[in-house]
Simulated scan of single mutants.
Amino acid sequence: MNIGIDLGGTKIQVGIEKNGEIISQTKALLKEKDSLSSTLKQVINFIKPLMNHGVEGIGIGVPSVVDVKNGIVYNVTNIPSWKKVELKAILEKEFAIPVYVNNDVNCFAIGEHRFGLGMQFRNMVGMSIGTGLGSGIIIDNKLYTGINCGAGEIGLLPYKDKNIEYYASGNFFSSFYDTTALDAYKAAKAGDPEAMSQWNEFGLHFGAAVQAVLYTYDPEAIIIGGSLAKAFSFFKDSMEESFKDFIYPEIIKKLNILVSNNENIALLGAAALVDQALEHAGTVDNPSSSL
């Protein structure tokens, strides 16, 4: 059994992975984000009660660029005190078990590939839509992070006058319509035509993000997660409409676009970082080894 931690800009979620399920789960808002010591103490205090379950390792997903080898996180999104945190060393000193750190959306992609809708695909991209837009890349059954754990930042590609993330994340609703994605979702569910029009416009922008993924990685599947995924039915049609000008229509025909159906999938992916590291250690001479 391994502990998985999903650390967001506003919340922390911790649980134990056992046979592809999360047990003993705890979640809460992240407190005193301007204090590194306070936030680290909160993380440690969440882990402590789970250590009596025979845990073998800890995996943690963080919304930042990560030095994966050394477990150092930099400039964590929405946690101003986390400029450079040697998270692996801190937690290994505290608990004396192996700790592995990666980007949170990479953990989402790993979770889908190991335990979720991505199990049937060798090449897939997980796209998480929330406050921002991130992607995790699986190529030939292996997570691809790039040299600096920066691969998959599709949202930061230039688009219109800003970048893709500005238009294809929750930021779209606050920037252009002075509302939130949640309120727009509730209004659309109630049949409000203005909200439905907003989601229709959003879908055109998200379609551009999908096209960027297709031109870059050409995966078998894209799996959509994050808080805005629940609104997929409201932007699906306009997203697909945006594909009409895609240069390679055969790619669109073969593409599988799925919506994540497991709210714990990022937590499962974080826990799987431990097994992934052990598998890699045992197969370093085998370039075809999978996750």
Rank of each mutant, 00 (worst) to 15 (best):
N148I: 15
C149V: 06
C149S: 15
A151G: 11
G152T: 00
G152C: 05
G152N: 12
G152E: 02
E153I: 11
I154V: 13
I154A: 11
I154T: 12
I154C: 12
G155F: 00
G155H: 02
G155S: 14
L156Y: 15
L156C: 15
L156G: 15
L157I: 12
L157S: 13
L157N: 14
L157M: 14
P158T: 03
P158L: 06
Y159N: 14
K160N: 03
K160R: 10
D161G: 13
N163Y: 12
N163P: 07
N163D: 15
N163I: 11
I164K: 13
I164R: 00
E165I: 08
E165P: 00
Y167F: 02
Y167H: 01
A168G: 11
A168V: 05
S169T: 10
S169Y: 09
G170R: 03
G170V: 01
G170Y: 03
N171T: 14
F173P: 00
F173M: 15
F173H: 08
S174R: 04
S174I: 05
S174C: 09
S174V: 08
S175A: 14
D178Y: 11
D178W: 00
T179G: 10
T179C: 06
T179S: 13
T180G: 05
A181E: 12
A181Y: 12
L182E: 15
D183T: 15
D183H: 11
A184Q: 08
A184C: 13
Y185R: 00
Y185H: 02
K186A: 14
K186C: 10
A187P: 10
A187Q: 13
A188T: 08
A188S: 15
A188K: 05
A188H: 02
K189P: 08
K189V: 10
K189G: 09
A190P: 01
A190S: 07
A190T: 07
A190N: 12
G191V: 08
G191L: 11
D192K: 07
D192M: 08
P193K: 09
A195I: 01
A195F: 06
M196V: 04
S197K: 05
Q198Y: 04
Q198K: 01
Q198W: 03
W199F: 02
W199P: 04
N200V: 00
N200E: 05
N200Q: 07
N200H: 00
E201Q: 03
G203F: 00
G203L: 04
L204H: 13
H205V: 07
H205N: 07
H205F: 05
H205P: 02
H205K: 00
G207Q: 01
A209H: 00
A209T: 04
A209I: 01
A209L: 08
A209M: 06
V210P: 07
V210M: 04
V210W: 01
Q211C: 07
Q211T: 05
A212C: 07
V213F: 02
V213H: 12
Y215G: 15
Y215D: 14
T216H: 11
T216D: 03
Y217I: 05
Y217K: 00
Y217G: 04
D218P: 10
D218A: 15
D218R: 11
D218I: 06
P219T: 13
E220F: 08
A221F: 05
A221E: 13
I222P: 07
I222V: 05
I223Y: 13
I223P: 10
I224R: 09
I224M: 05
G225Q: 08
G225P: 14
G225H: 03
G225T: 09
G226C: 11
G226T: 14
